[in-house]
Amino acid sequence: MDDVITVRQLRVHSREKALVGPVSFNLRHGSTTGLCGPSGVGKSTVLRALVDLLPNGLTREGELQVLGRTIAPRKGDAELRATVVLVPQTPVVFGGSILDNALFGLRHLLRASQEVLRERAEQALEEAGLWKEVADRLDEPAHTLSAGQRQRLCLARALALQPAGLLLDEPTSALDERSRDKVEQSIAALRGSRAVLLVSHDPAQVERLCDTTVHLDQPMAATSAAAAVG
C-alpha cells in the first residue's frame, strides 16, 4: 500500500511552549489508523495540524507530506483540505436540504452539471451508509436527521470530494449505542479505499476498526499547556 500521509517529528508550539509531539507516523492507502492517548494530550490538535487548521497562535514544525508533496505550514490550502478531509467531532449541518449538505464542499471544488454533482452526492451517501435512509427524502431539511444520521451526512460530505485521506475526530462520542454501531459500520466499509486516521477515546472501538495504532504522549515540558488544546 502507498503512503497517503507521512509525518516526521511533528510538533505543535504556542510561542516557546511545546504543546504536542514529537510524533511520527504514516497513513497508508486503504488502512485505518487509530490515534490514541490520554485526554488533553493533543489528539485533535494533530488532526488540525495535518490540514493546517490550527488556531491562531499555534505553529506546526516537522515534516508533513501528502501524496509525496511536502506541505509547508500555511493556512488557506484548499487543495490540501480537498485531498485530506477533517470530519469534526460535532457534526456541522448547514441550512438547506440533505442533498444540499452532501454537496456543500463539492459545489465549491468541482465545476460540473447538476446531474454529475447529484450523482457524486448519491455515491457519497451510499458510501457513508446513509443512502437507504434518505433516498426518498433528499429535499427535506438536513436538521430533521438524527444525531447519528448527521454524523454520517458529514462523512458523506467529505466522501463526495473523493479524498485520499479522512481524519475522523471522535466520530461517535456523542451517539447512543445504535447510532454508534451504524457509524462504525460506515467507517469499517472504508477499509481498502481510503486512508483513515481515527481519534477515539474508546480502546475497544480502536481495536474493532483500526489496523494500526499511534500513541500520542504528553510533552515533558507542557503538561499544563497541552490540556488546553484537546
Rank of each mutant, 00 (worst) to 15 (best):
Q185W: 08
R191Y: 01
A121M: 05
S186Q: 11
D136S: 13
V214C: 10
R137M: 13
I98V: 15
Q185L: 12
R157G: 06
A135F: 12
S186C: 07
L159A: 11
L99A: 12
V84E: 04
A128R: 04
H143N: 12
I187M: 10
E140G: 06
P163R: 05
N101F: 08
V92T: 13
Q205N: 13
A82H: 15
Q149F: 02
E127T: 14
C154L: 08
S173H: 09
E140D: 07
L99Y: 06
A82F: 10
V87R: 00
W131P: 01
R191L: 03
A147C: 10
G148S: 06
V93F: 04
L216Y: 01
A189M: 05
R178T: 13
Q151G: 07
L130C: 13
R81D: 04
A221W: 07
F104I: 06
V183W: 00
E133A: 14
P219K: 01
L145I: 05
L103P: 01
T83E: 09
E115F: 00
E122K: 11
E127V: 05
S200E: 03
A112N: 10
G129D: 02
V134P: 00
E126F: 03
A121I: 07
K132W: 02
P91M: 10
A128Y: 03
Q114V: 02
E207F: 04
E177L: 14
C154R: 01
L153T: 09
H108I: 02
F94L: 15
A124C: 11
S186R: 07
A204M: 02
E115I: 00
